[in-house]
Design a protein around this nucleic acid. Sequence first.
RNA 1: GCGCCCGUAGCUCAACCGGAUAGAGCAUCCGCCUUCUAAGCGGACGGUUGCAGGUUCGAGUCCUGCCGGGCGCGCCA
Length: 593
Amino acid sequence: MSDLKTVLGEAVEAAFAAEGVPAELARVTPSDRPDLADFQSNGALAAAKRVGKNPREIATAVAERLKSDPRLASVEIAGPGFINLKLTDAALADRANAVAADPRTGAETLAEPRKVIVDYGGPNVAKPMHVGHLRASIIGESIKRIYRFRGDTVVGDAHFGDWGYQMGLLIGAVCDENPEIAALVDQLNATGDVADEIPDAFRAVTLADLDRLYPLAAAKGKEDLTYRDRARKLTADLQAHKPGCYVLWRQFRAVTQVALERDFHALGVDFDWWKGESDADPLIPEMVAELDAKGLLVDDQGARIVRVAREGDKRELPPLLVVSSEGSAMYGTTDLATILDRKRAFGPDLVIYCVDQRQADHFEIVFRAAYLAGYAAEGQLEHIGFGTMNGPDGKPFKTREGGVLKLNDLIEMTRGKARERLHEAGLGENLPESEFEEIASKVAVAALKFADLQNFRGTSYVFDLDRFTSFEGKTGPYLLYQAVRVKSLLRKAETEGAAAGPVTVAEPAERDLVLTLDAFETALAEAYDKKAPNALAEHAYRLSQAFSKFYAACPILVAAPPVRGSRLTLAAAVLRQLETALDLLGIAVPERM
RNA sequence: GCGCCCGUAGCUCAACCGGAUAGAGCAUCCGCCUUCUAAGCGGACGGUUGCAGGUUCGAGUCCUGCCGGGCGCGCCA
């Protein structure tokens, strides 16, 4: 079952072919002029240029052939050669019935599914997540769901930052502050014993400690070369699995895990793999040896690098730093080893890295190295960058004090606002406390996610809590409200014993609604192809609006049975499609509000 | 300095391979609740798509230059 755009596209293609003009140009799109038509094809203009004929002549000949199509109510030529197509009410009703009967409400699946890894979230061990992780989590989660829904086999991987210089910094800082820990680290390092149980002295280290120490240590490392060198040495010690460093590091991971799970859970973000940089560590020695054997590894200023510059580059791309002069792995090293690890473990056709746009160069370098090493085929690695979430000043979001806002605080803040809004509107007042809290959480998540995903990921946007949590306008809460309104309607229909029936189309609002339902497949395909959830967000909003207009213009429960049945079928189809679309954005809908 | 991204309505953002009259939301103004959740619906107002050229029958979209903003440029991630 294809959408109308595709079906009409095939019809116009056939007409083009029959006229002897290139059929591949016969693209049908939704009409730019809904007052004139449902769909249009601009192919005659492109074809005219290609074959050197008058576009209106081609359009007229094609239109003549299309007029016999029983699904079309009218075929008209406009302007320089646009072909305007209007469907019959019966054709729309057929499509509506098909969408309503389809569990996927009209969304197609891929003919050739692929194996895909989506790498997103990017939390760091020993550091609480902050607003910077919000976009990666929201966008990555949505892309993962979209790919999976289309039929790919998809794995989402959190890819912790747990193996770099910041770990050495923290080991040093914790030891400086606590002599007991320092002594134990030295002792374990010396004896070579790796304890199964983390010693109590290490267990005393909390996430708050790490959170407090890291900024200080990072700052000191920038100024004090001795301090920095020691941290780098400790990083190398950790990577060499020196027991004291390694066991202390396990404590860092453990205390971080709890907070990360809480934050991701609150956002409705979930991973199939909770892997980190450290998981790729065991592959590094053989990888380095292999790079060396392939002649890719070059000694340079005490470090070992892979040169990735290519002929025709507009600028000189830095090399990939594989082994630092200290002997430690850099983040590019673990990223490359991770590619190898994933190739062996899963064999992905595509890996999508959903990471801040600022790391574009880094990924280009790593990808090139991976292609050179034969760890992936050209094009199988793709960085999907995104802009920053900014404050009212247009600069990356900061707290009033100028610090970084923790993700957990942001979520709490948004929930508080959601409760406030619900109370203002007098919603959910008679509901039990637990359900009200559930609703407030869903409203908060919908507000944050929809505000993010309605923008194209590449651009930055301004964070405005009041606007995001508003129930009016193009917001997440508005969409939830619309969905809940349909649920309420369908519940009422059930208690009244009103049954759904075949769809008929008569009113303009019904036509528009069916055309919008039909457009789901196009929106989904675009979101998939361009890795752009905003296409789906836009569709969800249009669908809600189309329904709201229909709801206002067409009484449902009080209508006579055949019409009532038709409208109930439409309402049920809208609800399922809307919930599907929202689910693909990572947004869950409550039962009532 | 070199490179990448961005500049669209008062504000926040869209715009399907280059197509008709550049669309939404907010804000402002005017209507609509004895009727299924009015957190809604209808209407009005609002634009030299940063500037200047070029390609094209046709440019927000492609090319060149300039102005303005953001970001990146090997031992942090």
